[in-house]
Nucleic acid binder design. Sequence first.
DNA 1: ATGATAAACGGAGACATCTCCGCTTGTCAA
DNA 2: TTGACAAGCGGAGATGTCTCCGTTTATCAT
Lengths: 202, 202
Amino acid sequence: MFDSQSTPPRSERRDAAENRQRILDAALRLFEQQGVEQVSMNQIAAEAQIGPGTLYRRYRNKAELCTDLMKENIILLFDNIEAYLNDNKPEPAIERLKGILNLFIRFREKKSQLLAGVEESTTTNRSRSRTHGPLYLELHQLLVDLFDEMADSGKARPNSVFKADMLLMALSSDSYSFQRTERGYSPELFLEQICLTFDLNV
Amino acid sequence: MFDSQSTPPRSERRDAAENRQRILDAALRLFEQQGVEQVSMNQIAAEAQIGPGTLYRRYRNKAELCTDLMKENIILLFDNIEAYLNDNKPEPAIERLKGILNLFIRFREKKSQLLAGVEESTTTNRSRSRTHGPLYLELHQLLVDLFDEMADSGKARPNSVFKADMLLMALSSDSYSFQRTERGYSPELFLEQICLTFDLNV
DNA sequence: ATGATAAACGGAGACATCTCCGCTTGTCAA
DNA sequence: TTGACAAGCGGAGATGTCTCCGTTTATCAT
């Protein structure tokens, strides 16, 4: 699912592989020192001792780089979710949904900076990086399935795709960090409010 | 409410006023020709025949410039809303809320480009232009009041401030244009889905 | 009028994004 | 091996954002 660029069709050239690693190392180093936000593509190229062109050949923007850096963590997140879902099969869909939201919010807390980097969408970028990344798509599908399951044994069915879109919007870096910092919500209170607002209660 | 920079404390210098007009004219011209997105601050400065420094002195970024260009339209929007609220005092709060959402969506349709410009928030910009502009704040207050009114005569009360934040998030340029273009919703269907999702029904 | 003063100007320049294209280098078939 | 060639490299440069600061200019009290 997430190996689309780490395992290209036919073997990566040796020098290219080395540069990839240099980039990843350099980025991680700089991100730790100065914060994701503050580091420019230029700096990363310099730190990795490659030209800007080489960097941009591989990653069209910082968001893609961050996504690559997060790959492992994203896989872990989905492993967690899968395990959670397996352990809680008998729970009602709504309960499992809450569980997933909880896992995602913890994930967001732990990796807030890089995750913000992943979702960063400079208006200049033609493609909607946020909504088209694997993280979004995968989560979206998960939510849609749960909403559909809830609707099956329920009454009226709001369009699950739309509902999932709105929920992910509400959980976006932008929204979440606004609520955390400006409105002063804790992760727990935030989740509670989300449940109230999106009608996710027993 | 919106005259904070068009009527400064003590009279604007004559040359400054002239430049302001040159900027506004130039921006409008270029925006029409090439689309808001495509026009750079540089181009605007050149077209207005002023230095970049002069442009940035007045508008810290394109979003501020767009806000200024939208001032009249924003005032008109709120006039419309006020009129609507006056004409529909007896309607239940939920009905009035829908009316407002409808007005806002029409507004968004009519001025989509400039409005996207207003909400543009390059991640580099420290200040959250979207959530701190007068448009957001005013709308937010309106929504909060209506939610509070609904809660008065209702049962449980989700935090109105939070709910309003989420609703505005859902109505943001990002979210709206995604639903319009990628999900293929018409303005009417979008509104309907919003009502379903946020539990705004008779 | 005129001079003091603060506001406004403008453009050089620091730094960022992103592309283009000639050069280099790994790879694989022969 | 080796040679052809696609893949990869790199840095100059186009364009953009945004700031700094020496210079100009409008305004107002005198």
